[in-house]
């Protein structure tokens, strides 16, 4: 895929070229939105909004990392979604247990390739990490999602988050510190490597 040729064609209004770019980046965009928003449906909406917005403002792309530019668009879409949620809070319709409590790890997302025990463990660990991510301030969460989950380098994250490099370093350090403290609360779910460190420290 010649990315720059596709971008150039899309800038001239070729929607098919832009759709090729979408197919290439849609997983990363959706995953980023999911980790920032913590829920699938709004993440889907944010991803779609981000692509529409990206196509409309494609003329503002002046080269550099297209992924970083796209991530900036999806980050903005997530911020809009979060603002919307704050204005109109909703109650999620999650499945309930026999006691009437909400299930912490919905099983409808189950991957059929895993055993139930593995799935349960992975679900709960993922849920724990997502819980700690959700507890972070939005700016910190965005930085940690882009750097640690998407694996972007500092300059790309700075470009996507539109903040100076120094701020990225600072936010990332603070976010990791808070995550470390939050994850201690889910000790029994953490892999042995993480637990060993805890045991050694105590």
């Amino acid at each position: 895929m010649d990315e720059s040729a596709l971008i150039h064609a899309a800038q001239n209004g070729d929607l098919d070229s832009f759709n090729t770019l979408i197919l290439h980046y849609q997983d990363a965009v959706f995953h980023t939105a999911l980790r920032i928003l913590g829920d699938e449906d709004p993440a889907e909406d944010a991803a779609q909004e981000a692509f529409i917005s990206a196509f409309r403002s494609l003329s503002t792309f002046r080269g550099g990392s297209f992924k970083a530019w796209l991530m900036r668009t999806v980050t903005n879409a997530c911020y809009d979604e979060l603002r919307r949620q704050k204005r109109r809070p909703t109650t999620p319709l999650e499945p309930e247990t026999q006691d009437g409590d909400e299930m912490d790890s919905p099983r409808w997302l189950a991957d059929p390739n895993m055993t139930p025990a593995e799935r349960s463990e992975a679900d709960e660990l993922e849920h724990a990490v997502q819980h700690c991510l959700d507890a972070l301030p939005t700016d910190f969460r965005t930085v940690v999602v882009l750097a640690d989950i998407q694996g972007m380098d500092y300059s790309e994250v700075a470009s996507a988050a539109r903040v100076p490099l120094g701020t990225i370093k600072s936010r990332l350090a603070r976010a990791r510190l808070r995550l470390r403290e939050c994850l201690r609360g889910f000790e029994e779910l953490l892999p042995s490597s993480f637990r060993l460190e805890e045991e050694r420290n105590s």
């Binding site: 980790r35 992975a122 660990l125 993922e126 990490v129 991510l133 940690v144 640690d148 989950i149 694996g151 990791r176 510190l177 995550l179 470390r180 994850l183 953490l190 892999p191 490597s193 993480f194 460190e197 805890e198 420290n201």
Partner: peptide, 13 residues
């Protein structure tokens, strides 16, 4: 600890 936390994030499905 920080490396382990970062590792967890990177291993998220």
């Amino acid at each position: 600890e920080m490396r382990a936390a970062r590792g967890l994030l990177r291993k998220m499905p």
